[in-house]
Simulated assay, not measured.
Amino acid sequence: MPDNGLMLAVIGGSGFYSFFGSDARSVSVDTPYGPPSGAITVGTVGSHEVAFLPRHGAHHEFNPHTVPYRANMWALRALGVRRIFAPCAVGSLTTELGPGSMVVPDQLVDRTNARADTYFDTGGIHVGFADPYCPTLRANAAELPGVVDGGTMVVIQGPRFSTRAESRWFASQGFTLVNMTGYPEAVLARELEMCYAAIALVTDLDAGIESGEGVKAVDVFAEFEKNMVPFKKLVREAIGSVAQERTCTHCLPHEGVTLPFELP
């Protein structure tokens, strides 16, 4: 497969395990970090060649803290991917964003621990991450009808959900969404100079935002499944609005820097 740097990718989150029909081809990619979380399928959306990777595996084999993030991002880059949309399920930390809301966050807060979150263990390489999402890709998704533009997504370790106290604390800080997989995916994309934008589907109000029994996984999956058709439609529309040629320079942090190894 030619590495032309034009391929887009979609990384599907919980409940988002497929994107193409039987006409898609499956691709296997070896990486220095082991195999990716699942087979990568390649198809087309409009004029774009698109690679799809299920973040948690085809049958949800990987919990958020065990997803092989470095292998996933490396494999996509090696295929020629340079722009990624990352659909994900999120809890809401505000009643203004109820279940079914679709949000394109513009900030994240990392509350994970012990996750391998860099390719650069040597070489003194530091990447700018003040704005963690590609502004160009964000605009492609955020400008679509019905989409909420902006929000801060706090990424927790998982696989457990937040306590009510944690949830209220996050909300008091002005965070609007809570998720378990948005980090280190975003920063690994930046280290590999790939544009990356999350598209979040709200599946529940977090534990501290409403009374009741708290968040249950079965309810999260049910809400995600209920909204899967319009959510996939949104992702396809976002891809359709992407220019054929990549023009973003925001996501090129290594210009003028000598890296300890070549990017794939």
Score class of each variant (00 low, 15 high):
residue 98 G to P: 00
residue 84 I to G: 01
residue 97 L to Y: 06
residue 60 H to R: 10
residue 103 V to R: 01
residue 90 V to G: 10
residue 60 H to S: 11
residue 71 A to D: 07
residue 75 A to S: 15
residue 104 V to L: 04
residue 65 H to F: 12
residue 59 H to A: 15
residue 76 L to N: 07
residue 65 H to T: 04
residue 112 T to D: 11
residue 118 T to W: 01
residue 56 H to S: 04
residue 122 T to D: 15
residue 94 T to L: 09
residue 113 N to M: 15
residue 72 N to K: 07
residue 56 H to F: 00
residue 118 T to Y: 08
residue 121 D to L: 14
residue 71 A to G: 07
residue 120 F to G: 01
residue 97 L to S: 06
residue 116 A to P: 12
residue 74 W to F: 12
residue 112 T to E: 13
residue 125 I to D: 11
residue 106 D to Y: 04
residue 111 R to I: 04
residue 119 Y to Q: 05
residue 88 C to P: 02
residue 66 T to I: 05
residue 72 N to S: 14
residue 118 T to V: 09
residue 114 A to P: 00
residue 118 T to E: 04
residue 84 I to Q: 01
residue 76 L to C: 13
residue 79 L to N: 01
residue 116 A to G: 13
residue 70 R to Q: 11
residue 81 V to A: 04
residue 73 M to V: 15
residue 121 D to M: 11
residue 70 R to N: 07
residue 119 Y to N: 05
residue 81 V to K: 00
residue 53 L to K: 00
residue 77 R to Y: 06
residue 83 R to V: 02
residue 94 T to S: 15
residue 97 L to D: 00
residue 94 T to E: 09
residue 107 Q to H: 10
residue 77 R to S: 02
residue 90 V to S: 13
residue 122 T to W: 14
residue 91 G to I: 01
residue 90 V to A: 12
residue 86 A to L: 09
residue 124 G to C: 12
residue 70 R to A: 11
residue 80 G to S: 12
residue 110 D to K: 07
residue 88 C to F: 05
residue 115 R to M: 12
residue 88 C to H: 05
residue 104 V to Y: 05
residue 78 A to H: 08
residue 82 R to G: 01
residue 76 L to A: 13
residue 112 T to L: 10
residue 73 M to Q: 10
residue 82 R to V: 01
residue 67 V to W: 03
residue 123 G to M: 08
residue 122 T to P: 03
residue 119 Y to M: 07
residue 64 P to G: 06
residue 104 V to H: 04
residue 85 F to T: 02
residue 106 D to V: 03
residue 88 C to G: 14
residue 78 A to S: 15
residue 83 R to S: 03
residue 120 F to E: 03
residue 87 P to E: 03
residue 77 R to T: 00
residue 64 P to T: 13
residue 58 A to W: 09
residue 65 H to N: 14
residue 84 I to H: 02
residue 59 H to M: 09
residue 109 V to E: 14
residue 61 E to F: 10
residue 67 V to L: 11
residue 97 L to F: 08
residue 95 T to G: 07
residue 123 G to W: 10
residue 115 R to L: 15
residue 71 A to P: 06
residue 64 P to V: 09
residue 77 R to E: 03
residue 107 Q to A: 07
residue 84 I to K: 04
residue 60 H to K: 10
residue 58 A to Q: 14
residue 55 R to H: 03
residue 97 L to V: 03
residue 85 F to I: 04
residue 62 F to C: 08
residue 71 A to Q: 07
residue 87 P to R: 00
residue 83 R to Q: 10
residue 55 R to S: 02
residue 88 C to W: 00
residue 88 C to M: 14
residue 88 C to I: 08
residue 82 R to S: 12
residue 67 V to D: 03
residue 72 N to F: 07
residue 85 F to P: 01
residue 93 L to E: 00
residue 86 A to H: 13
residue 60 H to I: 09
residue 110 D to V: 08
residue 78 A to E: 12
residue 89 A to I: 07
residue 106 D to L: 02
